[in-house]
Write a protein that binds this DNA or RNA. Structure first.
Length: 700
DNA sequence: GTTAGGG
DNA sequence: CCCTAAC
């Protein structure tokens, strides 16, 4: 018998990236990397879960497989863990998953891309709010002038936070595809409680990402882990496992997904070719758990790629749960014990690759192909045989809820900083990994070695009371709010967080919570005219999109009981972590441009300090460097065709003057010369303009 | 601290 | 806007 439990999860939002600030030049390259490191992907979570399950099952290897033996599960029996090889490029593509993956990759790219502003918002935490009654969105709380946002009103703790899990547990012997939606309805609506994360998919009714975990009720000698990743060809890597079958299927609704992600143009630009990205799915499993697994040790895979990084990188891929699974077959990759991960590019280690016998049933062809070499190792076949008999319990995590997150930022904080702050908070929480706990009938099952069968989890009837707890791993020292203790990784990775602005925003701790999905950051684009009131505009954006009130700098307020949670405080202490925020963008208004032009006409280029003093003395936010830069852009703007210009249009008249002045001063190289002042030969344009007007405006 | 330029 | 090298 096979029990299926479907938990849908909407992890999308979990991708978290933090981008540390680096020198510009280096930034681009490095950011991505770091971001990757820090990111936490849904996959990881899933991986954690899977790993946990695996472990559990693994441990109980002694228990024998009798129960399942009798049953034939062709589909499951052969499950293998598919893993993408580190290199990734050579993976075979899975037919089944084709559709879904690309989107995800896109998402990732957003996160990683250098332009933090646009990308940090977790867009994917969809339903966290919507779906759960428990979550309220209290966004605005103003406290002392600071805006405190509560992203989700939920209990701060991961523990005990009940989240609902939808699932059905059909007992089935067959390998039928797990279709989350289908199952849901049928079952009485069991709810599993997952404390901790509840992340729902906001994207669509269908669960974009669903995690299915399937493993044999009995944990025995043979366990296979099957991770069908969409499009993941079977890589070289091999994990050897006992023959427990664990199937992790991430289901992704492509459409939904895409809908959800509306990356800004910029983002898109950054995104790597979807196809390619998709294919690479790398380690799905959390390193932690896998590492723990005895046999896994040998796998080099993790190391080779730089370990976690790989995961992050690859997480781009969406896992898609496909009906295809059955049909198409997964290309499963089997990993054997000790098999080292194959790093080599297309090479497979013969041992590692296997085609399950089953594939014949589905699309063997695919399977074969995937085998890259089409080599099936004897071993595999053997295993397969074993597997076939196993019974499986399928789990699907429908959604995870993230605890409440408090964010407090100065009104002057930028939207970008807010985003980063949120990311940091989430990252901090999740960065340490998640601890998966199993709750059964209200009790936590601590014995990892016990089999599901023994536990009673294999019985459909019992599944109702099954719950998972996902708790942040607090590896860190003091969870305490102490800002001082930081998560190492996090702290470094933290994006450019807080600002230079006076109120240094600090993320004290946070429990991250499901982030509401932040709509594609339209915000940044920010062309808004912030000219006058920066605050408003920026806030507006956020609010509008995110429903979050103004928040400019974030401070995550530590929830009360966060023991479990890792606290990520950004204490001023860390210089590194100290995050410097980019100044808020303040587009020059026409009047400012006019004043600038006027001043330059009089003073020439090369005397920016004087220009500043003359025309922008009262505009504290305009530095001479800004003026210089603006002039630079004005010259450029004046040079290009009107169609190519963006932003608030600058009167052609001013642009003409810009060009004239630019030409004039270029020739005169008067930079140093004395100052040909107003009276000077500049005939260029003598519009007598009053700077004062400008100044007044700007000074705001 | 300013300038000039590249990013 | 940011960052830096070069004054």
């Amino acid at each position: 018998m096979v029990l299926k439990k479907t938990l849908e999860n909407g992890f999308n939002g979990l991708h978290v990236a933090t981008i540390p600030r680096a020198p510009r030049s280096a930034r681009r390259s490095s950011n991505k990397k770091k971001a990757e490191e820090s990111q936490i992907s849904a996959f990881e979570l899933l991986a954690s879960l899977a790993g946990k399950l695996l472990q559990e099952s693994e441990s109980s290897s002694s228990a024998s497989s009798n129960a399942s033996e009798g049953i034939n599960h062709p589909a499951f029996g052969k499950d293998v863990i598919k893993q993408e090889r580190p290199d990734g490029d050579k993976l075979l593509k899975e037919e089944c998953f084709e559709q879904g993956s690309s989107e995800e990759s896109a998402f990732v790219s957003e996160i990683t891309s250098p332009d933090i502003d646009h990308k940090f918002i977790p867009k994917e935490f969809p339903n966290a709010f919507l779906g759960h009654a428990s979550n309220k969105c209290d966004f605005l709380d103003k406290v002392d002038g600071d805006v405190k946002s509560t992203i989700a009103n939920t209990k701060p703790t991961f523990h005990n936070y009940p989240s609902k899990v939808e699932g059905s547990f059909p007992l089935e012997e067959s390998c039928d595809v797990n279709v989350g939606s289908g199952i849901k309805g049928q079952q009485k609506g069991e709810r599993l409680e997952t404390s901790g994360f509840t992340m729902a998919n906001k994207c669509g009714s269908d669960d974009p990402m669903a995690l299915q975990v399937e493993f044999p009720a009995r944990i025995n000698s043979d366990n296979d882990t099957k991770l069908p990743l969409h499009r993941e060809p079977v890589p070289n890597a091999s994990f050897s496992r006992h023959r427990n079958n664990i199937k992790l299927v991430g289901r992704d609704d492509d459409e939904n997904f895409s809908r959800c992600n509306k990356p800004s143009t910029k983002v898109k630009a950054n995104r790597p070719p979807a196809r390619i990205g998709d294919r690479r799915i790398r380690k799905l499993l959390t390193s932690k758990y896998w590492k723990a697994a005895p046999k896994l040790k040998d796998c080099e895979v993790f190391k080779s790629d730089g370990g976690m990084k790989t995961l992050y990188n690859k997480r781009k891929n969406c896992y898609k749960r496909d009906r295809c699974q059955h049909d198409t077959l997964f290309k499963r990759r089997k990993l054997f014990d000790r098999s080292s991960v194959v790093l080599s590019d297309g090479g497979f280690s013969s041992e590692s690759v296997s085609n399950s016998p089953e594939k014949s049933r589905n699309g063997d062809a695919n399977g074969m192909s995937r085998g890259a070499n089409g080599v099936s190792s004897p071993v595999l076949s053997r295993q397969a045989s074993f597997h076939s008999k196993d019974s499986h319990v399928k789990f699907s995590i429908k959604s995870f809820k993230v605890p409440e997150l408090y964010i407090e930022v100065p009104e002057t904080a930028t939207v970008g900083s807010l985003k980063r702050t949120v990311m940091e908070a989430v990252t901090a929480i999740l960065g340490g990994g998640l601890h998966v706990g199993i709750l059964f009938e209200g009790e936590k099952i601590r014995d990892d070695n016990i089999t599901l069968l023994q536990t009673g989890l294999s019985c459909k009837d019992n599944l109702d009371t099954l719950g998972f707890t996902l708790e942040p791993n607090t590896m860190q020292v003091s969870p305490a709010i102490c800002s001082n203790d930081q998560l190492p990784s996090l702290s470094y990775d933290t994006p450019e967080p807080l600002t230079r602005s006076p109120g240094t925003p600090v993320v004290d701790s946070g429990i991250s919570d499901a982030l509401p999905e932040l709509p594609p950051p339209v915000t940044n684009s920010g062309a808004h005219a912030e000219s006058n009131h920066e605050t408003d505009s920026s806030q507006t954006d956020l609010l509008t999109d995110n429903k979050m009130p103004d928040s400019r700098a974030l401070v995550v307020v530590p929830p009360v009981s966060l023991e479990a949670l890792a606290v990520v405080p950004l204490t001023p202490k860390n210089k590194k972590s100290e995050i410097v925020q980019r100044r808020t963008r303040r587009p020059f208004s026409v009047s400012e441009v006019e004043a600038l032009v006027q001043a330059v006409e009089e003073l020439g280029t090369g005397r920016w300090r004087d220009v500043k003093l003359r025309a922008f003395e009262d505009a504290d936010h305009r530095t001479y460097v800004d003026l210089k830069d603006k002039w630079k852009t004005l010259v450029h703007t004046a040079t290009i065709s009107p169609q190519q210009r963006r932003g608030e249009p600058v009167p052609q008249e001013l642009l003409d003057r810009v060009l004239a002045a630019h030409g004039y001063w270029s020739q005169h190289q008067a930079k140093q010369h004395g100052k040909p002042q107003a009276g000077t030969p500049l005939k260029i344009a003598e519009a007598p303009m009053e700077k004062h007007g400008v100044v007044g405006i700007c000074s705001s």
